[in-house]
């Protein structure tokens, strides 16, 4: 499980980083989402699967840690809000600048 998690987090980070560095603003925004999902998976791997049953139940086996799950729930909601904000801004940008090339969205110089 740990190896699988590490591989998944690594892959998501790799793809996300690659996409972030692209010139197209839409692709780089999607890269940001992939990256934040990679981070969410990293948070999950900090201990959510250490136990076998859910926390706060009557089962007597080893319980899994509820804190990382609470953390990613919050992080997912925040990154969802952040991404919708990014999309809204991108929409206005595409209307005003008529381009998705980040090199051409450069009118703020002085």
């Amino acid at each position: 499980m740990n190896l699988l998690m590490a591989l998944a987090v690594g892959t998501l980070f790799g793809i996300g980083m690659f996409q972030i560095l692209r010139r197209n603003v839409i692709r780089s925004a999607i890269g940001m989402v992939i990256l934040s999902n990679g981070v969410n998976l990293f948070l999950l791997s900090t201990g959510a699967y250490d136990g076998v049953v859910a926390a706060y139940t009557t089962a007597s086996q080893q319980i899994s840690d509820p804190v990382p799950q609470a953390l990613i729930l919050t992080a997912i909601v925040i990154s969802m809000g952040g991404f919708s904000m990014v999309l809204a801004l991108l929409y206005v940008l595409s209307v005003r600048y008529k381009t998705s090339d980040s090199d051409q969205i450069n009118e703020l110089k002085y």
Binding site: I20, V25, S28, A29, M32, L35, S36, V39, F42, L43, T46, L71, A75, I78, S79, G82, M85, V86, L89, L90, V92, L93, R96, Y97, I105, E107, L108
Partner: peptide, 25 residues
């Protein structure tokens, strides 16, 4: 140019938040 500036800030700050989450983790 408000939207352009806001996009730049938001994008960089989202990256910073990713860093902060990595530190938390």
């Amino acid at each position: 140019y408000g939207v352009e500036a806001a996009y730049k800030y938001f994008y960089i700050s989202l990256l910073a938040s990713v860093m902060l989450l990595l530190a938390v983790g």
